[in-house]
Amino acid sequence: MDLFLDCEWADVLASELVSIALISRDGQYAFYAERDPLPANPTQWVRSVVYPLLDRGDVAMNDATMTLSIRQFLVFLDNPRIHYDFGADRSLCQFVIDGFDIPEPPGPMPPSINWHLCQNLEQAVEAWWSSHPDVIAGRHHALMDARALRSAYINSLDCGQVDR
Results as ranks from 00 to 15, higher is better:
residue 125 V to W: 03
residue 77 L to Q: 10
residue 106 P to K: 05
residue 101 D to I: 00
residue 120 N to F: 13
residue 83 H to S: 03
residue 70 I to W: 08
residue 100 F to H: 06
residue 106 P to A: 06
residue 77 L to V: 08
residue 81 R to N: 06
residue 89 D to H: 14
residue 105 P to H: 08
residue 92 L to Y: 04
residue 115 W to R: 08
residue 86 F to Q: 06
residue 73 F to C: 04
residue 115 W to D: 07
residue 129 W to E: 07
residue 80 P to D: 02
residue 97 I to M: 04
residue 85 D to A: 15
residue 68 L to F: 12
residue 120 N to K: 15
residue 122 E to T: 15
residue 116 H to Y: 11
residue 71 R to Y: 12
residue 103 P to V: 02
residue 106 P to M: 03
residue 119 Q to D: 10
residue 81 R to P: 00
residue 78 D to M: 07
residue 73 F to G: 00
residue 99 G to N: 04
residue 92 L to V: 06
residue 124 A to K: 02
residue 130 S to W: 10
residue 91 S to M: 12
residue 110 P to F: 05
residue 108 P to W: 01
residue 83 H to A: 05
residue 74 L to C: 02
residue 70 I to P: 06
residue 116 H to F: 11
residue 112 S to K: 14
residue 90 R to G: 03
residue 79 N to W: 05
residue 105 P to A: 09
residue 73 F to N: 04
residue 126 E to R: 15
residue 103 P to E: 05
residue 115 W to Q: 07
residue 89 D to G: 12
residue 122 E to H: 13
residue 71 R to I: 09
residue 80 P to C: 02
residue 113 I to L: 04
residue 111 P to H: 12
residue 111 P to K: 12
residue 70 I to V: 15
residue 70 I to K: 11
residue 79 N to P: 03
residue 93 C to H: 09
residue 94 Q to P: 01
residue 101 D to A: 02
residue 92 L to D: 05
residue 104 E to A: 11
residue 128 W to D: 05
residue 82 I to Y: 08
residue 127 A to E: 12
residue 129 W to A: 08
residue 87 G to N: 11
residue 107 G to F: 06
residue 100 F to V: 02
residue 124 A to N: 08
residue 91 S to R: 15
residue 97 I to D: 00
residue 118 C to V: 14
residue 90 R to M: 14
residue 124 A to G: 04
residue 115 W to S: 05
residue 98 D to Y: 02
residue 68 L to P: 00
residue 80 P to R: 00
residue 83 H to V: 14
residue 95 F to S: 11
residue 124 A to H: 09
residue 110 P to W: 04
residue 129 W to G: 10
residue 117 L to E: 12
residue 127 A to M: 09
residue 84 Y to Q: 09
residue 75 V to I: 13
residue 129 W to H: 09
residue 75 V to H: 06
residue 86 F to D: 11
residue 92 L to S: 08
residue 77 L to A: 09
residue 121 L to R: 05
residue 76 F to R: 13
residue 101 D to E: 05
residue 93 C to I: 07
residue 97 I to R: 06
residue 84 Y to K: 09
residue 89 D to T: 09
residue 113 I to S: 03
residue 69 S to F: 00
residue 104 E to T: 14
residue 100 F to G: 00
residue 97 I to L: 03
residue 99 G to K: 00
residue 72 Q to A: 11
residue 69 S to M: 03
residue 93 C to V: 10
residue 76 F to Y: 09
residue 72 Q to D: 14
residue 99 G to E: 01
residue 118 C to P: 00
residue 91 S to W: 06
residue 123 Q to V: 06
residue 95 F to N: 14
residue 68 L to E: 11
residue 96 V to C: 07
residue 98 D to I: 00
residue 110 P to H: 04
residue 113 I to N: 03
residue 130 S to A: 15
residue 111 P to L: 10
